[in-house]
Amino acid sequence: MSIRCFVAATLLMWAGGAGALDLVVVVSPASGVERLSRDEVINLYMGRARKLPGGTAARPIDLASGAGREKALFYQRLLSRDLAEVKAYWARLTFSGQASPPVQADNPDQVLDLVARNPGGVGYVDRTLVDARVRIVYSFGE
């Protein structure tokens, strides 16, 4: 096992048992979006894209750092970055007046609620929490 694999595995274990969570990205059915690519999810969550593919203004929703293990796992799976790196990235954009980080929800239920009520809302939750109010547009898979 290379150092890199070891570190990644350690981080995933630290994130709280990766196998227990199956993260998916969800939007409101009103957005008209059927699917997002991984690159589109990256661009939305890194502040590089501000519109959904259909043209609706995007409102990506993040989880607060203390809200659970989903957040660390999401950024690890999406970008192979830990939360300190994501915070550093947003500190640069925020304090050079370029962009503001995604809004932070207190818990996954709030993510679902905000996505359901906003046509531009984008969120990430565990697949088991998804209900008819939102549509899965990207899955990290196994």
Partner: peptide
């Protein structure tokens, strides 16, 4: 433009 923000680098 973010040289003062030590946390960012």
């Amino acid at each position: 433009d973010s040289a003062n923000v030590g946390y960012s680098y």
